[in-house]
Nucleic acid binder design. Structure first.
Length: 562
RNA sequence: CGGGGCGUAGCGUAGUCCGGUUAGCGCGCCUGCUUUGGGAGCAGGAGGUCGCAGGUUCGAAUCCUGCCGCCCCGACCA
């Protein structure tokens, strides 16, 4: 493709709105432009990359027997009401104003709708149906360029099986296909166990990329490879002690002592001798959650333990519930449900709030004083704690979710009545799996992992062109002739070449645009080299340059472009 | 949705506190000549509802009120 005829609007300056490298570079290299918050137009260069990625995805999905659909983005609201997800998505779902339609944020309902009544026998399964479609979500705060938008391209696949054992097989097929897809894209990723959240179902895993721009937090063990979303991660930690002798309960005046740290300093004790109280509202009733010291409540774990959504109590509710404000709340004399983190199990001689401002209680024995206390794993894992598998230290960092695979089960097929007859002629709900990939995120993550101060650095996995040919001074007959010849020769040999044939810009502009766009191999045709019948080759990644004979170019390109 | 910041030509910005020439600069763009291996030089030129709407004032980019948009932090998030 000739640069002079292309629309590749590169930018020298950094747009002030962009912060993260992938966003800056995708704007600067002319791949995307923002239309509105979280809404991006893909320009030819960016869309070309999207097409390359979706080609890889299609090939691997087809390889496991996937069949591609193209479903409507505009959906009747009624179908979504049948599964309760209009409410579940809430404000995140876009509603059409002048008709009872919604803009689909995902497609479980619609795929299930098509399965219903059409997959009638166990003999017709397994089925794997997928599509690559724009999804719409009314994100409260779009961010990080293309990584979290209000509309985004997703590959979503759904498996339909006659049993949970069969679902396991479909799930494994997807797991392996996803590994191939991300490997072929050259992305450095890892897989974590995850919470399935509002999607329903049980087992789920996420394909993650480590990045400060990420919105998920994961715990990762370098040593054994253990990886889990912080929402479900566990670690080996020291439990609180149980002393041989339990003290009696006694009240302590603790004026203006609010935090655990202040309490520890005031009393000269260790944080493991304290129990922190947090009040949550579950099913409109308060629940006191008791944690050891400064341990953080993990709300996902809490919701799993209680079996439903929770919210922290508002500060103004606390006094009415407990009799005290935050900082003085505790389990003794608390008139509502109390649950505790496992770390506190059977602890004694503990200090906690007295449910009276400026007072704490010491000598608490959880076994003696709260005999009915329920214990759950409720704490959030922290960096440096020991891995449950190998005992080495865990790292905790931010990551971008690229893909997510779920064993959904029968949530949607039951709600929509998608059933089949099994070997015994008995009616059963179809067992589903759901598998997503954020297509633009693959692109953004690739860029996040492959750039330098000059621009993007594509490699053999992903690249917009095979070769970037620069005709430096396109007013000189010798340069025009030589570069046009090379261009034709490479095209005939089947290479995808970006030919910078502009005669309006300086050589420096071409060099910088080439480095910014980041095609792996640059062929530089200038008068200087042509005097010796030579052309310069530059390897974008290493910056290495060398001259080759004009006649040997094709062979050199064959060696360099895989 | 809460907190903070910002909105001036395609991009980056000065001017705003303290109202007063024709709103300035760099990049980019157009024309001509020169230049041509790492973002050129000279000359000429086009391009602005100063986010929008009200208000105050002889006079508003500047002050006041309301709204809209964008970025960052938080909440939320399959």
């Amino acid at each position: 493709m000739k640069f002079s005829k292309s629309y590749i609007p590169t930018m020298k300056e950094v747009p002030s709105d962009a912060i993260i490298p992938s966003h800056i570079l995708m704007l600067r290299s002319g791949m995307v432009r923002m239309l509105s918050a979280g809404i991006y137009s893909f320009l030819p260069l960016g869309y070309k990359m999207i097409k390359k990625i979706t080609t890889i995805i299609r090939e691997e999905m087809d390889e496991i027997g996937g069949q591609e659909f193209h479903l409507p983005a505009l959906n009747p609201r009624e179908i979504w009401e049948q599964t309760g997800r209009v409410e579940a998505f809430g404000d995140t779902m876009f509603h059409v104003k002048n008709r009872d339609y919604v803009l689909a944020p995902t497609h479980e309902e619609i795929m299930t709708y098509h399965a219903k009544g059409n997959i009638k026998s166990y003999k017709e399964m397994p089925q794997i149906w997928y599509q690559i479609q724009t999804k719409f979500r009314n994100e409260a705060r779009p961010r990080s360029g293309i990584i979290r938008g209000r509309q985004f391209l997703m590959k979503d696949a759904y498996s339909f099986d006659s049993s949970f054992e069969e679902l396991d097989k479909s799930y494994d097929l997807h797991y392996n296909a996803y590994r191939k897809i991300f490997d072929r894209c050259g992305i450095k990723y890892f897989v974590v166990g995850a919470s399935s959240g509002a999607m329903g179902g049980n087992k789920s895993e996420e394909f993650m990329v480590k990045s400060d721009a990420g919105e998920d937090t994961v715990a990762y063990c370098e040593h054994c490879g253990y990886a889990a979303n912080i929402e479900v991660a566990t670690s080996n930690i020291e439990a609180v002690k149980r002393y041989d002798e339990s003290k009696e309960i006694y009240e302590i005046s603790t004026p203006n002592i609010k935090s655990i740290d202040e309490l520890c300093e005031f009393l000269g004790i260790n944080e493991r001798e304290t129990a922190k109280s947090r009040i949550y509202i579950f099913e409109e009733k308060p629940v006191l959650v008791l944690m050891s010291g400064n341990d953080e409540v993990n709300e996902t774990k809490l919701e799993n333990a209680l079996g439903g959504a929770v919210r922290p109590a508002h500060p103004e509710e606390l006094k009415e519930i407990s009799g005290a404000d935050a900082g003085s709340i505790g389990p003794i004399g608390f008139g509502h449900r109390i649950i505790a983190d496992l770390r506190l199990k059977d602890g004694n001689n503990l200090y906690s709030g007295a449910n009276k401002n400026d007072y704490h209680i010491g000598g608490i024995d959880l076994k003696r004083d709260l005999p009915d206390l329920e214990y759950f794993d409720l704490r959030t894992v922290e960096k440096g704690e020991k891995c449950t598998r190998c005992g080495e230290e865990l790292d905790v960092f931010k990551a971008i979710e690229l893909g997510h695979i779920f064993k959904l089960g029968t949530k949607y097929t039951e709600a929509l009545g998608a059933t089949f007859l099994n070997e015994n002629g008995k009616e059963n709900p179809i067992v589903m799996g759901s598998y997503g990939i954020g297509v633009e995120r693959v692109l953004a993550c690739y860029v996040e992992q492959n750039f330098d101060e000059k621009g993007i650095v594509w490699d053999e996995h992903l690249r917009p062109f095979d070769v970037h040919l620069l005709g430096l001074n396109m007013k000189k007959e010798s340069v025009i002739k030589a570069s046009e010849e090379i261009y034709s020769k490479l095209n005939e040999a089947g290479y995808d070449v970006l030919f910078d044939d502009r005669n309006s810009v300086q050589a420096g502009v071409k060099f910088n645009d080439a480095d910014l766009i980041g095609v792996p191999v640059q062929l530089i045709v200038g008068e200087r080299g042509l005097k010796e019948n030579k052309v310069e080759i530059k390897i974008r990644k290493t910056g290495e340059r060398f001259n080759v004979e004009l006649d040997n170019i094709l062979e050199e390109v064959k060696k360099l472009v895989k």
